[in-house]
Design a protein around this nucleic acid. Structure first.
Lengths: 114, 114
DNA sequence: TTTAATACCTAAGACTTCTAGGTATATCCG
DNA sequence: CGGATATACCTAGAAGTCTTAGGTATTAAA
């Protein structure tokens, strides 16, 4: 057997969503991300916090995000924004996911007659 | 916290691809599936056997696929086809994945200005 | 005053996939 | 003839992501 250097079948879409959302903004905090995704998908997609926070921490550990904490209305918010490296990586990972989705569609969209 | 009945963020696309490929055909065998996916995606997507066979076995255990083994050119092939339940389930899972991909696009396609 | 919304977090388990093997036969090429 | 490649199946272990299911704390609404 061989199976060459592989692009994973379905890699985490969550981290790419995060990067994509941050591409368009100065900064966002975790809870805001969950609400934004809900809003964009008319409530159909829910980001669980158990997935979100570890994902954010990992992206930060990888150096793609930086944080600044700020207290608003007596509650602490942790704002995340893309680092320089994060901006580059974001573009790359979005392109990768897009390419994967294109291929997925090639497989899924085939007609029954083929 | 609450987080309602959730559609998983990252669902396995492989099993849905398998079901989709079988929707359009009488039957297929494992190796054939790997080749078909390669062909459909111009070599860009590779199904690893370490993922494929366990996925096939699981779908069979779930009652969505049945098998018939046949020897061709001295080599054993295990053909998989959709059961009646499999046909119903296939439609459902494909719709689910499609809905998920639509939502994913809503999040990914947002313009930087939004 | 209790519930819901806001806002953060973690641990345990489930699940999928990858890596990396293993077995075996047939065919192609030198 | 012999070795490599293609065909064809399989599994075990590790990696990684997400869900479930908690926890803490403040503010606003009922």
């Amino acid at each position: 057997m061989s199976t060459s250097p592989n692009s994973q079948l379905l890699k985490g879409s969550l981290s790419v969503m995060i990067l994509r959302l941050l591409e368009g903004r100065e900064r966002m905090y975790g809870y805001e991300i969950t609400q934004k995704v809900k809003e964009l998908t008319a409530g159909e997609m829910t980001i669980t916090e158990g997935a979100l926070y570890p994902a954010l921490h990992k992206l930060e550990a990888e150096g793609l995000l930086t944080t600044e904490t700020q207290v608003v209305d007596g509650r602490a918010r942790k704002y995340y924004s893309l680092t320089k490296i994060g901006q580059t990586e974001a573009a790359g990972r979005i392109a990768e996911l897009t390419a994967f989705l294109d291929n997925l569609n090639l497989v899924l969209n085939l007609k029954p007659s083929l």
